[in-house]
Design a protein around this nucleic acid. Sequence first.
DNA 1: AATGCGTGGCA
DNA 2: TTGCCAAGCAT
Length: 361
Amino acid sequence: MISATLPVRALDQKAAPRPADLLAWYDRHRRRLPWRAEPGRTADPYHVFLSEIMLQQTTVKAVGPYFIDFTRRWPTVADLAAAPLEEVLSAWAGLGYYARARNLHACAKAVVERHGGHFPADEDVLLELPGIGPYTAAAIASIAFDLKASPVDGNIERVVSRLYSVDEPLPKSKPRIKALAAALTPARRPGDFAQAMMDLGATICTPRSPACPLCPWMDPCTARAGGDPARYPVKAPKTERPERAGVAFLAVRADGAVLLRTRPDKGLLAKMTEVPSTPWGPVPVAPQSHAPFAVNWRKLPGSVAHVFTHFALSLDVWRADLPARTPAPDGCRWVLPKDFSREALPSVMRKILAHGRIEGA
DNA sequence: AATGCGTGGCA
DNA sequence: TTGCCAAGCAT
């Protein structure tokens, strides 16, 4: 018989997850990433900032080449701040969520103007900078300055929701998960702890078929004990993705130049370069009335499909060949394919050009 | 608080 | 093929 006076844990209770166990795992298994400092060192805050912005909703694999390119072009935050926005946007082209690039540039300028070119070592002050939200402020504070902060990204949401079997669905459960993560964060090595949580989520505690036997927290994990860790995190049902359609006008001049223009300052693909097109709507719009030239257009075979976050797009492509020295209509410009690399061409626009067999960068 | 905002890889 | 997912932020 177990004495009631002894501090004996009931058999169905689990030990709390120990940060030291995760840190020991991290010391052996940490990923080597371009923006990450060598073990025992803290990273360049500019590198942490740049990588964190790029990594928002974006895979490590996709970010790699962009991070290398950006740091080569703009080695310091002051260099980035001094660059023209157009160059930053064209360097960002293809990475998606272009508001990040605009905010990245605005943030670099703010760091120079408000903080003398040094990132503030303070989570609350970081939070006031453009493009830096709760996650990124905590990530920079902890990773770049080793301050006690608890960034919560998708990885950490998954790890924490499994550790504690959080049944309330996201995003409603965010505050609770944030509190649990904060309670777990140690006073020593908070930066390594944050990165360890992310590495664990990315390599062991993965969305599907997590590798529990390799996990340093297998023992204290309640979802593992429950037998179906992959059912966490519980998420609210998603709204469906509507279809939109339109026609893109590929005007090609005799010298090979293609008619392009810059999109409006706000909204989808703001300030990016585009191929002129009809509006993209749920119902097809009379294409002729939106054509940049009143000439004979021929529809190219097939169509271009592209999926955005909140709608799926299907575009027909109409082509017209025009004489050399044809002037560009208002708001448009002729661009030779060899100069495409200087343009801020999003992936959907590159697909349209490729569909018309136009070879650019 | 809910919605708008990209892209590519993967099962 | 289709849906899901990846180091979120702004409004």
